[in-house]
């Protein structure tokens, strides 16, 4: 089945956006590093449910999100801890704490699983936000591909930055030798590196809807974009401010 054709879109959508979204959708459906294809698609579906979750709305208003009890409206079949993680990332991300992340393995989600889950949620969420911004219907979820996750964990990942292990800035070897695009290794690039494919996914999507990491070095603007870098950064900064993003 073909995805992201935009045949009924009132706005022409760039070919590279169609390509990257479509390729991500295919990867989403396949077994990942720590979740099966069915689980990955369920996590993606749950990210859509979270957007309109009434319990999340109540929790968002509370002084401490960790003292509010209730149930998310969920129909994905995922366990409650996984559902809650997805909803927190979508609706209350700036109150996620180290202690909550560190509690996840005891609740049944490995740290590696949490990183992959985050990667799925943020990629699907940004594709959906692109559609919502343009008033376009959301794409149908892909059909999951059977198989088992690889359980691949890069040997060089280490704790020390943020809540989860990440790959070091220098000296990457093996399959991760060229993971840092153009050698760029800011923390936001390192963030998902415990699951290298999650980082690869976000870099690919970013190159289509924002800029490639190489393109980020160009402070003027790219010829294949209709807005220049200042215009992009104004939008980026306003979105980040409303999300109360310190980073």
């Amino acid at each position: 089945m073909a995805y992201f054709e935009y045949s009924n879109s009132p706005y022409p959508i760039r070919q590279d956006i169609k390509k990257e979204f479509s390729e991500f959708w295919q990867r989403l459906a396949k077994p990942g590093s720590w979740w099966t294809g069915a689980e990955r698609v369920a996590i993606a579906q749950e990210s859509r449910t979270a957007v309109n979750c009434s319990f999340c709305s109540i929790r968002k208003q509370s002084l401490s999100p960790y003292n509010v009890t209730g149930e998310h409206g969920s129909d994905s079949g995922l366990d409650p801890t996984t559902v809650d993680a997805v909803h927190r990332i979508v609706t209350d991300q700036n109150r996620i704490t180290r202690s909550w992340v560190e509690s996840l393995p005891d609740a049944g989600i490995s740290t590696e699983g949490y990183v992959e889950l985050t990667g799925i949620v943020v990629c699907v969420f940004s594709i959906d936000e692109f559609h919502r911004a343009l008033g376009l219907p959301l794409e149908d979820m892909p059909e999951p591909v059977s198989g088992e996750p690889s359980h691949y964990r890069p040997a060089q990942a280490e704790l020390g930055t943020g809540f989860v292990p990440m790959l070091p800035r220098e000296g990457l070897t093996g399959a991760e030798e060229n993971l840092w695009p153009n050698g760029r290794n800011a923390n936001v690039i390192r963030a998902l590196s415990l699951v290298p494919d999650a980082l690869r996914d976000w870099l690919a999507l970013s190159s289509a809807i924002y800029l490639s990491v190489e393109g980020m070095a160009n402070l003027i603007g790219q010829d294949d974009r209709s807005i220049n870098r200042m215009q992009m950064e104004l939008i980026a900064a306003r979105v980040s401010a409303i999300n109360e993003c310190f980073y």
Binding site: N94, T97, V122, A133, G162, Q231, Y247
Partner: peptide
């Protein structure tokens, strides 16, 4: 311009969630 602006907004809806979910410092 609308399509490119929507892309940037969507991208940064993602970036903030990566930063906060992983707890990365500046």
């Amino acid at each position: 311009v609308l399509v490119d602006a929507a892309g940037v907004a969507a991208n940064f809806q993602r970036m903030v969630r990566i930063a906060d979910s992983m707890g990365i410092p500046i």
